[in-house]
Amino acid sequence: MTKFLLAVHVLAAIVAIGPVTVAASMFPPAARRALAAPEDARAAETVRLLHRICRVYAVVGVVVPVFGFATARQMGVLGDGWLITSIALTVVAAVVLGVLVLPGQERLAEAVDGGQDEAGGTRAVTVRLAMVTGVFNLLWATVTVLMIVRPGSTTGA
């Protein structure tokens, strides 16, 4: 059962979190391009698509910690420091995504749909969004490393 739970946890992380990190990273430059060329319908559609990918996969990503907790309980490591740190970082990443990244994308997508340049502040808004997206990605990378080289690992790493 542990192997099954671990496999589902890892697959869910790859399938759910991977698309969010990639699409979120692509969003700021796509929004900049779309706002610079309001007549380009394809650029606007790209912005909407990237935002939709982030929203949908953020919801799908909830299965990652669910199966993570089930796996940790099965392995008897719920109290281990590396896992508690991973849980804390996962919560911070979820907050960054839900409070900063997705609302920032929503505001820029609305600006693109309205054909306005956020009062001329597109560069600053997209740079800030790129920064918080980078923080989100860094948090997930740290959690991934902790999961691979956790202290007390039985993998021999």
Rank of each mutant, 00 (worst) to 15 (best):
A7W: 12
V8I: 15
H9P: 00
L11I: 14
A12R: 03
A16L: 01
A16E: 00
P19M: 03
V20Y: 05
V20R: 02
V20T: 07
S25R: 08
M26C: 12
A31R: 02
R32V: 11
R33M: 05
A34Y: 01
P38D: 08
D40R: 02
D40E: 00
A41Y: 03
R42E: 15
A43N: 03
T46H: 10
V47W: 00
H51R: 12
R52E: 14
R52K: 09
R52D: 14
R52Y: 13
R52G: 09
C54V: 15
C54P: 06
V56I: 15
V56H: 11
Y57E: 04
A58W: 06
V59W: 07
V60L: 06
V62H: 12
V62Y: 11
V63Y: 02
V66W: 01
G68Q: 00
G68F: 00
F69H: 01
T71R: 00
Q74K: 10
M75C: 12
V77P: 00
L78D: 14
G81E: 06
G81K: 07
G81R: 11
W82F: 10
L83V: 07
I84E: 11
S86R: 02
A88G: 05
L89Q: 04
T90S: 13
V91M: 07
V92N: 05
V92G: 03
A94M: 14
A94R: 10
V96E: 13
V96G: 09
L97W: 08
G98T: 12
V99Q: 13
V101R: 01
L102F: 11
L102Y: 10
G104K: 02
G104A: 08
E106Q: 12
R107P: 04
R107H: 06
L108N: 03
A111F: 11
V112W: 01
G114Q: 09
D117P: 04
D117N: 13
E118D: 07
A119D: 14
G120D: 14
G120Y: 10
G121S: 11
T122Q: 11
T122F: 09
R123I: 11
R123P: 06
R123T: 11
T126N: 07
V127M: 13
R128M: 12
L129G: 01
L129F: 03
L129V: 02
T133C: 04
T133S: 09
F136W: 13
